[in-house]
Amino acid sequence: MLDFLVFAVTMIAIWSVVALSLDLQFGLCGLVNFGQILPFALGAYGPAISAAHGGSISAGLALGLAMAAVGGVLVLAPVGRLSQDYWALVSLGASEIFRLLMVNVTPIAGGQDGTAVARVSNPLAALGLALGLLLAMLLLARRIDRSPLGRLMRVLREDDLLVATLGRNPFRVQALVTVVAWLMAALAGALYAHVVGFVAPSSFSVAETFIVWTALILGGAGSLLGAVVGTAFVQFISVSTRFLAAWSGLPFDLVANLRLGIFGVVLVLVFLLRREGLVPERKVRVDAVGP
């Protein structure tokens, strides 16, 4: 029982970092990233590419982070020219281009079948690393959230023109947030690769992006704790329905499909019934101080 719980909590911690990263982009900055799985995938493919070509673990980590930082800026580049719904499609497209490349160009990292990477074989060590990463990223995100930059981001979310009239360049704020957020997700991806021990394209599909979105919306966009709570809830649904499946006695294939359907239903219900999420964003009140 213990190993099972340990693995489940490890996954919650890793995916929480991904949700936190999306929270910085969307919750605080208003960037509708429909390709959130991309920075995570880039982070995971760093170790995978390194392993496939005989590189070291640290080289893999560095490669993953570098790809995420560059990728973030590239994907963000057209954001100024587009409204958010168009940009959402660009980010979704970018994540799929990467996944399709990994599927179809076998020499990069094993194609569809993927690549084995060094695995953290002690489950408790993996858990410790994941919780450590989550804690560090929570502190970092909190720091950004409460800083003048965080306030500027919230202004940007509501009205980018206002940011421009304040004498700030909206794109530079967005670029800074994107690079930080993508590095966070890439770190989570690299850790994921080493915890799971195997990197294959099927782990980084559009569906994964929307599971992160479900977690964020459920937890409450704009609230850092919400990202963690939402992820925990989503992973809990995913894991606990395995037990319900056995108990229900329904045919195995029917149960498997119903399990996945729950995510969609949860996402819609949150929108309809509790739009602010489980942990609503705290209202920041800033009074003008002095001249």
Binding site: W213, T214, I217, G261, F263, G264, V265, V268, F271
Partner: peptide, 11 residues
């Protein structure tokens, strides 16, 4: 858009 994805997943 996000909500519509939820609908899609359920369907």
């Amino acid at each position: 858009m996000i909500a519509s994805w939820g609908v899609a997943l359920a369907f």
